[in-house]
């Protein structure tokens, strides 16, 4: 019961926070750009709406930009901003003098980050759906897509990207719990995202957890990479996540100064 109250409390803190805005803006950013482009060039949409794989192609276009850079970067920012809320507002000491177990505080904060990730996925999918269908409703020369909305495909794709984001969330959570200075988790995160993009073609690229969302996109598009053929990146993502969370928990519990 205490955990639920703690999560509710943590969720309230995200109200009007930068992380909360990031989730909303991040979720609608790419679909929003797609929608504007499709509205401006609606005359060229006719043939595309007849595509029997209309939704898969459209989702692929959206995920391409999102998975390569924006998603890992957004995860880095959001996970770091949640703990930064406490550092910036000087509130760790108040949190740690409430009658909650340290484990409860650790889990509730992580739960909020994961919930925000789910919220992002939901908004991104909603954005894609709206961007895919709105031109047909706004312009008479654009028919509705012939293909029925493939709910299962969208679910599976989001699920896989979510799994691939977990190690990034866990490592960023670990780092940001340890450092007051926001630039450290942000700098390390950005560095690792860039390293992942550079090292994506390396045959051992699966060692870099920040490369998993681009890898998932390549798998989605059927592009063969040495790293993705060598291992199951989803299993590696879950393994990394477990290791990072356990490590983050130990470091947090044994932190000498808690505020």
């Amino acid at each position: 019961m205490q955990l639920i109250h703690s999560i509710q409390s943590e969720w309230l803190k995200t109200r009007r926070s930068l992380a909360a805005w990031l989730v909303i803006i991040g979720g609608f950013f790419i679909p929003g750009l797609q929608l504007i482009g499709r509205c401006v060039h609606h005359q060229q949409l006719g043939a595309r709406m007849d595509d029997p794989r209309y939704w898969e192609t459209f989702a692929g276009n959206n995920w391409q930009i999102m998975s390569l850079f924006l998603l890992p970067m957004g995860v880095v920012l959001a996970a770091s901003l949640i703990t930064q809320l406490e550092y910036r507002n000087n509130t760790w000491k108040q949190v740690h003098t409430t009658p909650q177990a340290f484990s409860t505080i650790f889990v509730s904060k992580l739960s909020v980050i994961l919930t925000m990730m789910l919220q992002f996925m939901l908004l991104f999918n909603l954005g894609m759906f709206l961007a895919g269908i709105l031109p047909s409703l706004l312009f008479s020369d654009v028919d509705l897509p012939k293909e029925k909305f493939p709910l299962r495909f969208f679910w599976d794709t989001s699920y896989n990207f979510f799994i691939c984001s977990l190690p990034v969330i866990a490592l960023q959570y670990l780092i940001s719990l340890q450092f007051r200075n926001f630039m450290i988790p942000l700098g390390l995160g950005l560095g690792l995202v860039i390293a992942a993009l550079i090292g994506a073609e390396w045959k051992h690229g699966y060692w870099i957890p920040y490369a998993y969302t681009p890898y998932n996109f390549f798998i989605m598009r059927g592009i063969k990479m040495q790293a993705t053929q060598a291992v199951n990146i989803h299993h590696w993502a879950l393994g990394y996540t477990l290791v990072f969370i356990v490590l983050a928990y130990i470091l947090y519990i044994f932190k000498r100064d808690k505020g």
């Binding site: 409390s9 803190k13 109200r15 000491k93 108040q94 003098t97 409430t98 009658p99």
Partner: peptide, 30 residues
């Protein structure tokens, strides 16, 4: 800790929340 109230050094407030919302955060915990 459930019997102690504390105020250590600089005040702890969530800048983006109102006074009432700030207290709501703690009310949920207590």
């Amino acid at each position: 800790l459930s019997k102690i109230g504390s105020l250590i050094e600089n005040p702890s407030v969530y800048a983006q929340l109102t006074a009432m919302e700030n207290l709501k955060v703690w009310q949920k915990v207590y």
